[in-house]
Write a protein that binds this DNA or RNA. Structure first.
Lengths: 209, 209
DNA sequence: CCAGAATGGATAGTGGTACTCGCTACTATC
DNA sequence: GATAGTAGCGAGTACCACTATCCATTCTGG
């Protein structure tokens, strides 16, 4: 198919498709002549994936490129892919060297230790968690740290579910994409469910007239 | 204190403080003369809160203003505040009228029903969840819906924890701020813990050499 | 008391991101 | 052979979160 049909089928404007081609988030079509190329279903699918990452995940185009490069360079080691995608998806606030940082780092390390989790203590997510605690502390919400064990328990169940999801993928390609979809769409789904659960719990505790 | 000290104590540039004053996310100081005003600790705290919402929560300034307006207009009904903040915090992708939308709406309604949750089915979070399912479906990841029950169970525990956190607030003001901090910082903390749990679970299932 | 620094307020400019447009030199198709 | 579509490219747009500059006024240290 040519670019107009690709646009129609994916719902993405022609100009935007060209932009994505330039930015390397969409592979070029197969050249049939110096100024003609033909695209196929993989391009339609890729466009949908890009839109999902941008619209649902809120990723900048550069991060999308990083993620997709990982997906396109199949590495059977799940851990590797997981790491790259997790990295790209992260909003990393500047690592402030707050004096309270050491205490927060300690708290996170203790938490991970208590849970018996086997994950690198310098993982970006751990750093992010430290950042959250430092921020909370600066707002006088030191007690936020107390909810973490319960959050962590919930996340353990979620992660189990996530890995089950990966195991349900038929092929390697599908598996790689599942990592991306699982992380990005999963984050959104989780946030949405959390809000619904909050409303439910609030109504349970403080019924409205 | 004057603006220079406010800047020093909060770590926010003077020009940025002026910008925040213009945008209404920081209340004006007390005027001492036609072109002098004095600020106090509440301003320092407010600036930290704004930075937390922007840096950690990724909220645009306009959303921050909405959130803070709610915090500043104390309504003892927790549900109301919760709703407003949840709304402001949401990234709402344009509600597509995909043909697959009806099925996704059905799935979400069924899920909420099965869980016995008492929340409005037209809640933005429910709509967002529908959007996620539609997106997943368009990518051929229809089976994502299968993980939702487990996600929901985890979120129920998280929400319980969240409401406990609110109940731990001493005053009404503190309570209102806890809603904000709980939602925004909580989302980040949850996402970070999920990633750590994923790494842990992945290493458990596929140990690395 | 007075010079120089600081302040509030306003306007304009910057840098980054994600497109979007317009153009040219083609090619495909009716 | 007229008309429509295409690739590629540079420039332009819109929005956002600041950031810089200016000015009239006010504060402050000597």
């Amino acid at each position: 198919m040519r670019i107009a049909e690709l646009s129609r089928r994916s719902g993405v404007a022609v100009a935007t498709i060209k932009y994505y081609l330039r930015e390397g988030v969409l592979p070029p079509g197969e050249r049939t002549s110096p100024n003609q190329a033909s695209y196929d279903d993989t391009h339609v699918h890729r466009l949908r994936l890009v839109r999902a990452l941008v619209d649902v995940g809120g990723l900048p185009i550069a991060a999308v490129r990083d993620v997709l490069e990982t997906v396109d360079a199949p590495d059977p080691a799940v851990g590797k892919t997981l790491g790259t995608v997790q990295l790209a998806v992260f909003r990393s606030p500047p690592p402030t060297d707050d004096p309270a940082r050491a205490a927060a780092e300690e708290a996170v390390a203790t938490l991970i230790d208590t849970l018996g989790w086997n994950c690198p203590p310098d993982h970006p997510a751990a750093q992010a968690l430290v950042g959250v605690l430092v921020t909370a502390g600066s707002l006088g919400h030191e007690r936020l740290v107390e909810v973490l064990p319960r959050y962590a328990a919930a996340c353990a169940a979620v992660a189990e579910s996530d890995l089950d999801y990966l195991d349900g993928a038929a092929s390697l390609d599908e598996r790689l994409e599942s990592v991306v979809v699982g992380i990005v769409l999963g984050d959104s789904a989780l946030a949405a469910l959390r809000r619904l659960a909050q409303v439910n719990e609030a109504l349970k505790r403080y019924p409205e007239p």
